[in-house]
């Protein structure tokens, strides 16, 4: 089915937050095309009457008690942060909607 274009790869990369290079666009377009053609064969046997399986083991209703467990301390929480300030994770300016 697919013949995946360079533009589509660029779109996927943007959705996935990957700043791919021009060379990668060419490489990935070719490789994704081959892979997607190959995996599309799942459609050959996946008929409408077959229910999908999302979980290998059929469990239901696994709940946790509403009991507080110790949290990490602020220092521990921030220990691996690339940048922190005033007990918070410091991140570059956020574009977009106000929360």
């Amino acid at each position: 089915m697919p013949s995946i274009s360079r533009d589509e790869v660029a779109h996927l990369a943007r959705l996935a937050r990957l700043a791919v290079t021009d060379d990668e666009l060419d490489l990935f377009a070719g490789q994704l095309d081959v892979i997607l053609q190959s995996v599309a064969t799942v459609g050959d046997i996946a008929t409408a009457d077959i229910p999908p399986t999302s979980h290998a083991v059929p469990l239901t209703n696994v709940f946790r008690e509403d009991v507080v467990r110790p949290s990490l301390g602020q220092q521990q929480a921030l220990a691996g942060a690339p940048a922190a300030e005033d007990g918070r994770f410091r991140v570059p300016r956020i574009l977009g909607e106000e929360a």
């Binding site: 929480a77 005033d86 007990g87 918070r88 410091r90 991140v91 570059p92 300016r93 956020i94 574009l95």
Partner: peptide, 13 residues
Amino acid sequence: GRIHGAEHSLLDY
């Protein structure tokens, strides 16, 4: 203190 024009943001989870 709004998002527009902010230089960076601080996150509390």
